[in-house]
């Protein structure tokens, strides 16, 4: 298999209405497999959130990462994703999350860490156009002089790579620290007293509404790589619903690493 370029592919955009955290987890699994099987063209999906969530990494311990009582009190759904990496705290309107589903050929032969930066080159360009100088901090952080902006994670399976990123648009850091245990440890570990110092969200850096930031990102992707508007097919939605019910919404999966 030789490497393909972005322009070798006919990129599709999916940006639909809000979905629940477990639906998002299931869609990532289903769409990665659809692209891997060649039934779907390579796709960029922008997420909209129906409810608050903590998304923990594939290998994180549920009880070590999440304060279950605080999560329940704030009506936050805890889900486990299929990729590694760290926990994300999400409230509707506070983050910008996207997934890229690509054939493995796009990152063929690239070292692990180069594949991350390669998948998000367009985002760094988009941020630059919004006046934010951002760069990749290996392995999987997008950061700026003001602090961290986003975290990425990749997983490769069955001929495809899933690359998904959560960017902080606006963030309630005190609530985040009530819910995420690791946040407290990492902060104390780094000797940073203010949580706001570690994450510098897009809202304060751009002064733009969230929808405008998303619009600018989509425009940049379209200009650099080409992009056609698409929708989820009925069978994809049905497969994701089944997958959420059987796996991602179940305590067995969420507590796979208790």
């Amino acid at each position: 298999m030789s490497r393909t370029t972005w322009r070798d592919h006919d990129w599709q955009l999916i940006h639909t209405g809000a979905q629940t955290p477990s639906q998002h987890m299931a869609l990532d699994a289903v769409l990665t497999d659809e692209v891997g099987a060649g039934r779907r063209k390579p796709t960029l999906r922008i997420w909209e959130w129906a409810s608050s969530a903590v998304v923990i990494g594939r290998f994180q311990s549920l009880r070590n990462e999440v304060d279950a009582e605080a999560a329940q009190r704030h009506r936050i759904e805890v889900v486990r994703r299929i990729s590694g990496g760290g926990a994300m705290f999400i409230e509707p309107g506070n983050t910008i999350t996207y997934s890229i589903y690509a054939p493995l050929s796009l990152i063929q032969g690239l070292p692990f860490s180069a594949a991350y930066a390669y998948m998000d080159k367009w985002v760094l360009a988009a941020l630059g156009e919004l006046g934010i100088e951002a760069w990749y901090q290996p392995l999987n952080d997008i950061t700026s002089a003001g602090g961290k902006i986003a975290g990425a994670a990749q997983v490769r399976r069955a001929g495809a790579v899933l690359h998904h990123v959560t960017m902080a648009y606006d963030i309630d850091t005190s609530k985040m620290l009530e819910v995420l245990r690791i946040g407290r440890e990492k902060l104390s570990d780094k000797g940073t007293k203010s949580a706001a110092k570690r994450v510098d969200p897009l809202r304060s850096q751009t002064g733009l509404p969230r929808a405008k930031v998303i619009e600018a990102m989509i425009d940049t992707f379209r200009r650099l790589h080409g992009l056609h508007d698409d929708v989820l097919r009925a069978e994809e939605i049905a497969a994701a619903e089944a997958c959420a019910a059987e796996k991602f919404a179940t305590p067995a999966w969420t507590a796979d690493v208790p």
């Binding site: 594939r58 290998f59 311990s61 070590n64 692990f112 994670a153 990749q154 690493v257």
Partner: peptide
């Protein structure tokens, strides 16, 4: 991260976790 117990001199209930990447999972 490792969580474990020791019973009769042997490791038990060992749980590896963390924010690393590992494939296959």
């Amino acid at each position: 991260v490792i969580d474990l117990e020791v019973e009769a001199g042997r490791l038990t209930n060992v749980q590896l976790s963390g924010d690393f990447f590992l494939e296959p999972d």
